[in-house]
């Protein structure tokens, strides 16, 4: 379980980007972080795993303070998938093995190989294990990056818009796959996502961020026409189609 308290962040001498962020992410649950561009969502993710250093606040994973761990220990607890990750000319297998980096001292152990193979299987990547990542399609690349993050065996998985470059089918396929694995392994997921309908379908908890602060935080009930309008400044209708709520902007 991850507990975040009183997180404040600002870049040198500029205005505050995050103010008093607090939330919890439970094992096996998926928390959607929603808000406008520039609201501070990505910055918040980067503060959680020390890519950025917040001025104030604590992040606890299973009661251990993330800011007091060495970086490799943070990486054993938390995995991060950056927005539009850069891909290098590594084979899929080597790229997923990179997820074992926080555990590897000199050489690869049998255990690492087993875990990498398991993750490759779980993400349906068996057929492309020896292909170079930069030769794969966007959807396949995203699966590889997610597989690398899962190979870290994290307690918390941070995803920064993992579906933003994917086609319709891949958006669902990738999220389906990764969230299934996370639920199965009790990994807490924090996902920054722009597609509200994807969020409604896959996420258990929601956090709305407006003007660098938490606007509302809770389960699906907090997603209403009013809250969406308030946060995104656009009028919407929420329809129910086949038992699922769908958000459609008003004409």
């Amino acid at each position: 379980m991850m507990v975040v308290k009183e997180l404040d962040f600002q870049y040198n001498s500029s205005f505050q980007i995050l103010r008093d962020i607090a939330f919890e992410a439970l094992p096996g649950e998926c928390l959607a972080v929603l808000g406008n561009n520039g609201a501070g969502k990505s910055t918040m993710l980067k503060c959680l795993n020390r890519i950025l250093s917040p001025q104030k606040g604590t992040v606890l994973v299973d009661k251990n303070n993330v800011y007091q761990m060495p970086l490799y220990a943070v990486a054993q607890n938390m995995a991060f998938v950056a927005q539009g990750s850069q891909n290098s000319r590594l084979t899929v297998y080597d790229m997923v093995m990179l997820g074992r980096k926080p555990y590897i001292k000199w050489g690869i152990r049998k255990e690492d190989e087993k875990i990498v193979e398991a993750v490759i299987r779980q993400m349906n990547l068996e057929s492309m294990a020896v292909r170079f990542v930069d030769e794969l399609s966007g959807g396949e690349q995203q699966k590889v990056i997610l597989a690398r993050a899962l190979a870290q065996q994290p307690k918390v998985l941070l995803l920064d818009e993992p579906t933003s470059n994917l086609d319709l089918r891949n958006q669902y396929e990738v999220l389906d796959l990764v969230l299934k694995v996370c639920r199965h392994n009790d990994i807490a997921v924090v996902i920054v996502i722009h597609d509200l309908n994807l969020a409604l379908r896959y996420c258990d908890k929601f956090m709305l961020i407006k003007e660098n602060q938490v606007y509302d935080y809770g389960s699906e009930e907090i997603i209403t026409c009013e809250s969406i309008e308030d946060v995104y400044q656009i009028a919407v209708n929420i329809h129910e189609i086949d038992g699922e709520r769908v958000i459609v902007p008003k004409r």
Binding site: R50, A73, A75, Q86, S88, L90, M95, L98, K101, L158
Partner: peptide, 12 residues
């Protein structure tokens, strides 16, 4: 090679 932020998130 996978980017600076990714490297940090892998414990580098």
């Amino acid at each position: 090679e996978s980017g600076e932020q990714t490297a940090v998130s892998l414990g580098v």
